[in-house]
């Protein structure tokens, strides 16, 4: 994904056991923060069909 031009900060892999609730919370928070810092994804989004303007409004 990163090679193709999707920001590598959007791509996360983790292994969380069902017993690791605190790790799960931490991972979710980290992913959310990393993606929020990047802003809405503008790549790999089909532009036609989707009403771009309302998509952007939603994303803002």
């Amino acid at each position: 994904m990163a090679h193709m031009g999707v920001e590598s900060e959007r791509i996360h892999f983790s292994w969380v056991s069902s017993a690791e609730s605190t790790k799960f919370v931490r991972v979710v928070n980290e992913v959310t923060e990393a993606v929020r810092a990047l802003g809405p994804n503008r790549r790999f989004v089909k532009s036609h069909g989707l009403d771009r303007q309302s998509y952007d409004e939603k994303a803002a």
Partner: peptide, 14 residues
């Protein structure tokens, strides 16, 4: 060559 590009440039390249 592609690996050395910025994310932006990679996207544009493809």
């Amino acid at each position: 060559k592609i690996e050395a590009m910025s994310t932006e440039d990679k996207w544009g390249y493809f």
